[in-house]
Write a protein that binds this DNA or RNA. Structure first.
Length: 464
RNA sequence: GACCCUAUCGUCUAGAGGCCUAGGACAAUACCCUUUCACGGUAUGAACCCGGGUUCGAAUCCCGGUGGGGUCGCCA
């Protein structure tokens, strides 16, 4: 049997971190078993679905590098098929028309809640042997309800949570088609998973309660029941649940915030899944190791600090040319023209990538190379003392004819040390202030090498 | 309220009855390295929710409690 998994978001917003992990696990499971991963857009909520959201989801998936093998399928394009199945069910008696109005339904639910009961449809239009149904009210367009079994239990062996069992008595006859004929979620999912031959449904925890309904539907249709794996939810950094109002952000926000996709992926993989003590691994390793047995059943709290650590780790490993592209992109976005200078962004990346936590910090440093920052009075008076300026003057003369490589520049600075009798920090710090308006930078010889002779002398002359 | 799920250091987790005086990672703290800030290295502190069982033996199995979460839509 070929494994077929799917990621089925509804296009009512961006791809957030929880959805991204669900997609990642579905993708990995298919890859792990040489199967097929498909993307399905569940857009039957016409009022809330937007093309922008579809694009946002596609963008997020692409940024993460989670490629689907089939799709994207759009449920709105499958209406004919849904109508056909509904008609079939109506004919076979596994579904029926219900003329109860929304108002009556609301009243019924309010009464049930007042009695502290579980709100549910009371089956008044459900056909039963020997039961006489009221005459269909004129002018009312009925909804279609599924005739759910009333006895027994429905259970499945959840691939992450173990055996889960529901009494059919707990389930009511849910609506599968609205008054306007459009099918509803549980129904579409079932028909799609069936038609698309999905073997493993990997989805969020919030669908556990839909599963017994979907299994009953599948059985009524005579369709095979796939394996289910329900992933527990991801809580915010503060332990609170993520919501639109609180903490739920688009995966693209992580791009904006300077995270590398491989860091986000590695973090997400490790959030709720483990492989012994492995913490840092490639996607190839993840795919080779991934299994549902080691997915945690309980909710996990998002930890930005650990993500930051992974991001810093992957930054160190990242190719300098790739980082150069990121630097240009980010600087350009903040209005800095990097074209006027011949400073090599890859060089900047090479000497700074192991000192920063994210791409934005790297870009901020790069900014200092492209545009000479001002020097605050405070720093000037503290570091550009008479002694320091004299040393810088000495250094300037030597720099004039120095061979412009880091080792040679290091030697040059040391000559100034010898000449002035100062210690390295006594020269290096004023030099940093003169060059960048701040006291910290990467190793000063490397910095000079990247900044270049012309720019270095120009900046030095400002303070001499 | 009903139903369903869940519970190991602050956080993510290892752990499938003896290997556990509970391991790793992030974070924290200390020290080392050092041309500043970082990086890096080393070390330290830090947890099995509670109560009953089962068993020679339980973090691991069972029951109950408590905490947390999910669902109860003509949303998905």
């Amino acid at each position: 049997m070929t494994v077929r998994t799917r990621f089925a978001p509804s296009p009512t917003g961006f791809l957030h971190i929880g959805g991204a992990r669900t997609a990642l696990f579905s993708w990995a499971y298919a890859r792990r078993h040489g199967g097929t991963f498909l993307l399905r857009i569940e857009d039957t909520d016409v009022a809330r679905s937007t093309p922008e959201a579809v694009q946002a989801i596609l963008d997020g998936m692409q940024w993460l590098g989670l490629a689907h093998d089939e799709g994207p399928f759009y449920q709105m394009q499958r209406m004919a098929r849904y109508g056909e199945v509904i008609q079939q069910m109506l004919t076979s008696g596994s579904a029926y028309h219900c003329y109860m109005s929304k108002d009556d339904l609301d009243t019924l639910r309010a009464e049930q809640e007042a009695r502290k009961q579980k709100p549910r449809y009371d089956g008044r239009w459900r056909p039963e042997p020997g039961k006489t149904l009221p005459p269909a009210p004129a002018g009312v367009i009925p909804v279609v309800r599924f005739r759910n079994p009333t006895d027994g239990v429905v259970s499945w062996d959840d691939q992450v949570k173990g055996k889960i069992e529901f009494a059919n008595a707990e389930l009511d006859d849910f609506i599968i088609a609205r008054g306007d004929g459009t099918p509803t979620y549980n129904f579409c999912v079932v028909v799609d998973d069936w038609d698309m031959a999905i073997t493993h449904v990997i989805r969020g925890d919030d669908h556990v309660n839909n599963t017994p309904r979907q299994i009953n539907l599948l059985r009524a249709l005579g369709a095979p029941v796939p394996a289910y794996a329900h992933l527990s939810m991801i809580l915010g950094d503060d332990g609170q649940k993520l919501s639109k109002r609180h903490g739920a952000v688009s995966v693209m926000q992580y791009d904006d915030d300077g995270y590398l996709p491989e860091a986000v992926l590695n973090y997400l993989a490790r959030l709720g899944w483990s492989h012994g003590n492995e913490e840092v691994f490639t996607m190839e390793q993840f795919v080779a190791w991934f299994d549902l047995d080691h997915v945690t059943a309980s909710a996990a709290q998002f930890n930005t600090e650990k993500l930051n650590w992974l991001n810093a780790h992957y930054l160190k490993l990242a190719d300098d040319q790739r980082l150069a592209v990121e630097i240009h992109r980010r600087l350009k976005a903040s209005g800095v023209d990097t074209g006027v200078s011949n400073i090599d962004a890859a060089g900047i990346a090479a000497i700074n990538k192991d000192r920063v936590g994210n791409l934005n910090e790297l870009s901020d440093i790069a900014h200092l190379f492209y545009v000479a920052p001002g020097i605050s009075n405070e720093l000037a008076s503290m570091h550009l003392t008479e002694v320091a300026v004299a040393a810088l003057r000495d250094l300037r003369t030597r720099l004039q004819d120095a061979v412009w490589t880091a080792p040679e520049l290091s030697a040059t600075v040391k000559q100034t040390l010898t000449a002035t009798g100062l210690k390295m920090p006594q020269v290096a710090i004023p030099l940093r202030v003169a060059l960048f308006g701040q006291t910290q930078s990467a190793a000063i010889d490397k910095v000079l090498a990247v900044l270049g002779r012309e720019e270095t002398l120009k900046r030095l002359d400002r303070v001499l």
